[in-house]
Design a protein around this nucleic acid. Structure first.
Length: 893
RNA sequence: GGGCGGAUAGCUCAGUUGGGAGAGCACAGCCCUUACAAGGCUGGGGUCACAGGUUCGAGCCCUGUUCCGCCUACCA
């Protein structure tokens, strides 16, 4: 006998340990079974489980458990990401607390520190994944800085370099002055802000007059090396070639002509700062202008800033504005909206900054990745995301991959310091190598030093689907599981990660890394706001599992996961699904209460005499099985969850269990056994269907269920298919008639506020076809409608003082005697009458429209004609009853 | 600036080839009926954002408008 309440805590741990001990989650490198593989989006080692992970993990676990049960050789490959900048930041903060910093420690010692930190805290998130039931193959867990993955990174770097797809050069990149490193374009978050447009007067060198330029960043004027105008702009044509003198610092720069300048914006004259603006950079190249870097790496003004040297960039802006104003060079200031780039890790405003960096020439890789999606080798679900993917891929720019931090994959490049011969000189002493070279392969010098930079973390993540499987070695895992089956993740890393995996997978494996990409929603709070620590509106998934149990939480996430829409998370809904678990738990208790000694074996007996209820529920089960499988196949998690909820609660519990109670409590052994067998069978199959969604409670109940299958765990029971039920349309049809009759009586009871304990008599006037069905199943009516002395027949006449309910093919009368209120009943029926009259009007209009009858499909026309006849019948019945009631009333008066 | 998505019951959302709108929660009424009051039964509640169009027929397809959300962008 099961406990009165379901207590998740102990049970969850018990079964997770059991599954691990039995090694169910381990995949086979070689197997006759078809392979099914998902690589986990590796969470940061600095992270702890947030609700987005919880959704992501739940959906993956559902797919994995479903496929494992469905007979696949299933691999869910887990791991974590070293998260270069984020992790370095965390450890640096620790050092700060100890009043030291990484430069004091030195590179080697610092990295040791980070590894120590990783050992201590890096496993946190992995344990949290386990706690929500993730059935990963932990024996294959990987970390992006593992020896093996590092080898893959070097291999890829070297090969891309050798093909000319990786190059080094001095360009404008996004620079975070706080993290002290370059960022890729993607790592910059733009935020729209109300800013100012400053109009600065530049006097001509000869002292006569001036030209005004507009800028949002006045401090950069210190780096100006030209003023540009559009060559077609009549206002300025005559000034081209003239020189102006920059205020305060008195540098003389030319006025140049460039097509890029939009004459309609601002004054039509642009200050050109090649070292601090991407457009100006291009112009600088075109016109051979000097590049003056006025900033230092930590966002302060450099040597080039003259009197402003050493000032913080924003402090400097203020000072410069003041000085320009005082010297009469600030013409005016207007409001101006602009998007400002922030570092995605620390939110500091980034600077376009000129520096020497490594880049991936991305176009050739992107072209292949576009093709893979275009011709369907990679399918993105929901397909709406394909547009974004193409848009980004088609306008992609070279990827800056070097980072000026220490934690990460150090760039496998060395520089020869001596460059003893021409060959070495030709290469600028650059040595790109998989292994650390002892001496320069070109000139033999032993004086080498390695590039200081590390690679973008996403560079190693891009290799994840094959580096984790053993690449560059030719492993069995790789042959078995690559390409993987599906990648499940949020859209926020579609470009960061998904797109880059596709590029790298195609490049190095000649095959797409996954066949499907399922993009799920972002979880917001109940008001639709993005969750963030600063807003204080985060929902802690671990708290949810503690309060409601992991299963209820997981089921909630699945039920929420409709495609293409964000999730507004409400705790109430978790509570609702906890009730669902309670319901399931109680059916299990009901079953356990009805098991008697020796009955378990009887379950194996082939039962022949199935009742209508048995046949109905088995038929419903059959269609639910196919519904669930189809929904999961199409990643419609919410539909699958909804179908299970509906079936188990409202069909199995509300109808079936109630219907078989008379049999279970009765003495007729054969039908008792049939009912019990069917109940246990349907429930067992339901548990199996549910298992991927709520693994713990289903396992707990299943283990105690009589007549379960041979397997030692629900984890490895075969996933149900339509054959687990028995399709029986005839039973469904008959059952619907029985249900209609029950509903009629219940409606009368409910609408007249009669007590559920009050037994009612019922007289049912039927058509030919329904009479026998109802007569055969009269016990259901008695039980479910709490009715007695039921009379069924074609010739039934409405008794006096009876309430009436009408359904297709039946009229139900409930005599009420003293309780009967004739006026209330007339008004009840009149309401029904109005409804049906509206219906009739609607269909009549349709049918009398010749266009409809001639142009609509014949089936639709027929359907409406049938409807019309049925409506008329119903109206007739209602009218007859109203007439009768009126007669009675008159005769009583 | 470009692109994408959304607007359906009080709330959160389904709605799969266009054939008279559904669920869960909330609400109201009757019930401690021996699995379950975390429950049962019954019921009320919608101009499917707005305006046009296509069609015999539109929540669904097309055009435009408004509001909201998101992505993207080298708008000085």
């Amino acid at each position: 006998m099961l406990e009165k309440r379901y207590e998740p805590k102990d049970i969850e741990k018990k079964w997770y340990d059991f599954w691990i001990e039995k090694d169910y989650f381990r995949a086979e490198a070689k197997s006759d079974k078809p392979a099914y593989c998902i690589v986990i989006p590796p969470p940061n080692i600095t992270g702890s489980l947030h609700i987005g992970h919880a959704l992501d993990i739940t959906l993956q676990d559902i797919m994995i458990r479903w496929k494992r049960m469905s007979g696949f050789n299933t691999l869910w490959l887990p791991g974590t990401d070293h998260a270069g900048i984020a992790t370095q930041n965390v450890v640096e903060k620790e050092l700060q607390k100890q009043n030291t910093d990484r430069h004091v420690l030195g590179r080697e010692k610092f990295i040791e520190k980070v590894w120590e930190w990783k050992k201590l805290y890096g496993g946190t998130i992995i344990n949290q994944l386990k706690s929500i039931g993730a059935s990963c193959d932990w024996s294959r867990e990987r970390f992006t800085l593992d020896e093996g993955l590092s080898r893959a990174v070097k291999e890829v770097f070297v090969r891309l370099y050798e093909e000319g797809l990786i190059y080094r050069g001095e360009y404008l990149i996004n620079w975070c002055p706080r993290c002290h490193t370059a960022l890729s374009d993607l790592e910059v978050e733009h935020e729209d802000k109300q800013g100012k447009l400053y109009y600065i007067k530049y006097s001509f060198m000869d002292g006569n007059g001036h030209i005004t330029v507009a800028t949002t960043r006045p401090e950069t004027y210190l780096g100006d090396t030209a003023v540009a105008v559009n060559p077609e702009d009549d206002r300025y044509k005559h000034l081209i070639g003239k020189k102006i003198r920059l205020p305060i610092i008195n540098r003389d720069v030319p006025i140049i002509a460039d097509e890029f300048v939009d004459a309609s914006f601002g004054t039509g004259a642009v200050k050109v700062t090649p070292a601090h603006d991407p457009n100006d950079f291009d112009m600088g190249k075109r016109h051979n202008l000097p590049f003056i870097n006025i900033l230092t790496g930590d966002g302060k003004m450099s040597e080039e800033a003259g009197p402003y040297k050493g000032q913080d960039r924003f402090e400097c802006r203020g000072n410069i504005l003041k000085d320009l104003e005082e010297t009469g060079h600030l013409e005016m200031v207007t409001d101006h909206n602009l998007a400002i780039g922030h570092c995605y890790r620390c939110k500091t405003i980034v600077e376009p900054y000129l520096s020497m960096q490594w880049f991936v020439k991305i176009k050739p890789l992107a072209d292949e990745a576009i093709k893979a999606v275009k011709d369907g080798r990679v399918k993105i679900i929901p397909s709406g995301w394909e547009n974004s993917y193409f848009d980004w891929m088609e306008n992609i720019r070279d990827w800056c991959i070097s980072r000026q931090i220490w934690w990460g994959h150090r760039i496998p490049v060395w520089y020869c310091q001596e460059m003893r011969n021409a060959e070495c000189g030709m290469r600028n002493g650059t040595i790109v190598s998989r292994d650390e070279p002892k001496s320069c392969p070109y000139c033999g010098s032993g004086s080498l030093f390695q590039d200081d930079d590390v690679l973008d973390t996403w560079f190693s993540s891009a290799l994840w689907p094959f580096s984790t499987l053993g690449w560059p070695d030719d492993t069995e895992d790789l042959n078995t599981f690559y390409p993987t089956s599906v990648l499940i993740t949020g859209f926020d890393i579609l470009f960061f990660w998904v797109a880059r995996m596709i590029m790298m997978g195609l490049k190095f494996r000649d095959q797409e890394p996954f066949k499907h990409v399922y993009i799920h929603a972002l979880i917001r709070d109940a008001e639709g706001q993005k969750m963030s620590k600063s807003k204080g509106n985060v929902v802690d998934p671990l708290k949810m599992t503690e309060m409601y149990g992991t299963d209820a939480f997981r089921f909630t996430l699945a039920a929420y996961a409709a495609q293409g829409r964000d999730i507004k998370f409400s705790e109430q809904r978790v509570e609702g699904y906890r009730h669902f678990l309670n319901k399931i738990w109680n059916v299990a208790r009901f079953i356990s209460m009805n098991v008697k000694e020796g009955e378990e074996r009887a379950l194996a007996v082939k039962v022949k005499n199935l009742s209508l209820a048995d046949r109905w529920v088995l038929s419903r089960l059959s269609s639910v099985c196919s519904e669930i499988n189809k929904a999961l196949e199409e990643y419609r998690f919410n539909d699958a969850a909804g179908a299970l909820y509906q079936f188990i609660w409202h069909e199995l519990c509300d109808w079936y269990v109630e219907m078989i109670k008379p049999e279970l409590y009765g003495d007729y052994e054969e039908s008792k056994r049939a009912a019990f067998f069917t109940l246990v069978h349907v429930f067992e199959v339901s548990l199996a269907l549910l298992h991927p969604f709520m693994p713990y409670i289903t396992e707990e109940i299943w283990q105690q269920l009589p007549g379960k299958k041979e397997d030692e765990s629900l984890c490895i029971r075969e996933y149900p298919s339509t054959e687990d039920g028995i399709e029986d349309k005839d039973a469904e049809k008959k059952m619907n008639i029985v249900m209609d009759a029950v509903t009629c009586i219940r409606s009368i009871r409910g609408e007249l506020n009669l007590s559920p304990s009050l037994e009612l008599q019922a007289l049912i006037k039927t058509s030919n076809s329904t009479e026998n069905i109802l007569k055969e199943n009269i016990t259901y009516l008695e039980k479910l409608a709490k009715a007695k002395n039921i009379e069924i027949g074609k010739e039934i006449l409405p008794p006096k003082n009876a309430a009436t309910a009408i359904k297709p093919a039946m009229e139900v009368f409930v005599p009420l005697e003293g309780l009967f209120d004739i006026d209330a009943e007339i008004s009840r029926l009149s309401k029904e009458k109005i409804k049906i009259e509206e219906d009739i009007e609607y269909v009549k209009k349709k049918l009398s429209n010749e266009d409809f009858t001639s142009k609509a499909p014949q089936a639709v026309v027929e359907e409406n004609k049938d409807k019309y006849i049925n409506y008329l019948d119903k109206l007739q019945s209602i009218q007859n009853n109203i007439d009768k009631l009126n007669q009675w009333r008159e005769s009583n008066e």
